[in-house]
Design a binder for these strands. Structure first.
Lengths: 251, 251
DNA sequence: CCCTTTTGTTGATACAGATCAAAGATACAA
DNA sequence: TTGTATCTTTGATCTGTATCAACAAAAGGG
């Protein structure tokens, strides 16, 4: 969900102290500040799929980095309409330093491992270690750009374009992990239910199902089972997103 | 558009060196770092209503703060569909340190005065003055929260709720400026065309027009002329936004 | 002042996607 | 293995908003 991830991979960072994330899927934080200080502070916690990590309004005791799995950040209107506002993949940051209570619900979409830091000491470290602050700023700005791209999607794209955009993001993120150019063909597991995708895209799950099958029927993607997607012609998928050909989405 | 503004006002900051912004509408930056350093760097520039400040893809030579007027941040799909992704009001920041080219179009919606800093020296200052970096991080995180609230609006709210949300944001921002509780009744000039509102809300201008007049007909707002809005019962307006009663939008 | 342009309103109609409903798949537990 | 819950697909229908079209009202410029 942010350019930071691509940059990390480009920079060749390959491991993260005692962190269990292996090779490419590195933690953005351990590399950014005095490694030892963060080493001492961190603790790992595993959440089951479907488990709520924090509710909006809860005290924010921790900030964290996603180590493995997929977590979602979402919001609900009074009558229950739900909108996901962030998809948190490995290396993404969870939580907001400087805020006492959480604004959004964070849930484990799959089994999730977080590398957690108590918020207060983390904030202290943030004030003391300039490099960490720089890193946080860079990430926050990247996420802001990504959020704005998502606003374009939510406000102006058709259902088909929305699905194509989501799949192209997941595909390119997967290909970064595998160090392949997406144009060579990517295949990946869609670790989200139709409902989760709908919540992310501002659609209903029925529309998501119909449009995924339409893209399959039109040969834009291949499906094996319900959850495994193969993109043979990545440029074709991109052309379905509605985006300007230059630039493209921030991933 | 961000909580930073409310915080600034709460903190009682009342002027900004030689900056022409008077009293409440303070510049977020001059207060944040070594005032003198920024004083030397800054230059003011006025843009006419409708003028493009930067196109997406342009070299980013400056970053800036809005002094007066309203600017918009927007994005366009290949076929011309347009989505505004930020409304920049006095004290809001424009531009992205650390990025060579702009990602979004920035336009003056009304006549706009910017307080500009050349990007390169600003970035250098950012690296040298921790207080400035902290400020930037805080603002970026606030804007990120605001962008996410907007994603909920774009993805899940009805046209009527969208209009009510926009009006309630403008009303509360206005009441902060005037140091009045919005519950006492606010009135303000809508300095946006129906089309600009539509681009912000992910609607067409016809729908915006119809829904504004529906809110007027239902007594939620009063209109004098096309552009002046009075909100007698702010709670009533809030109840039309669809938001959970606690919390509310980040402004 | 008139003329032109921009902005806003209103009506008729079309359609994308929501909603309602039901039936297949798939996974998982006993 | 069967039973149960969850996830997904598919169909029929409805509806909110877009689209198309025309006109009204302001705004700006000579």
């Amino acid at each position: 969900m942010n350019g930071n991830f691509a940059r990390l991979v480009e920079s060749g960072i390959t491991d993260c102290g005692s962190c269990p994330i292996q090779r490419r899927a590195v933690c953005a934080y351990c590399q950014s500040a005095e490694l030892l200080l963060l080493e001492q502070m961190k603790s790992y916690k595993t959440y089951r799929a479907g488990e709520v990590i924090t509710w909006a309004g809860d005290d924010q005791l921790y900030v964290a980095t996603v180590v493995t799995g997929v977590a979602s950040l979402s919001q609900t209107l009074e009558d229950g309409r739900r909108q996901m506002v962030g998809l948190l993949l490995p290396s993404d940051f969870v939580g907001r330093p400087g805020r006492e209570t959480a604004l959004f619900d964070v849930e484990a979409a799959t089994e999730v491992v977080l590398c957690r830091f108590e918020r207060k000491p983390f904030e202290k470290l943030l004030a003391e270690v300039p490099r960490l602050g720089e890193r946080m700023l860079e990430m926050a700005l990247d996420e802001l750009d990504a959020a704005r791209e998502w606003m374009l999607l939510l406000g102006r794209k058709t259902a088909r374009e929305k699905i194509a955009s989501l799949l192209s993001i997941l595909a390119s993120r997967e290909s970064i992990l595998l160090e392949q150019a997406p144009s060579d063909g990517v295949s990946f597991d869609l670790r989200l239910t139709r409902e989760a995708m709908a919540d992310y895209l501002g659609l209903t799950l029925e529309t998501v199902s119909r449009q995924i099958n339409a893209l399959k029927r039109d040969g834009v993607i291949e499906l094996t089972g319900k959850r495994h997607v193969k993109v043979a012609d990545f440029a074709r998928l991109l052309s379905e997103t509605g985006d300007d050909s230059d630039g493209g989405m921030v991933i």
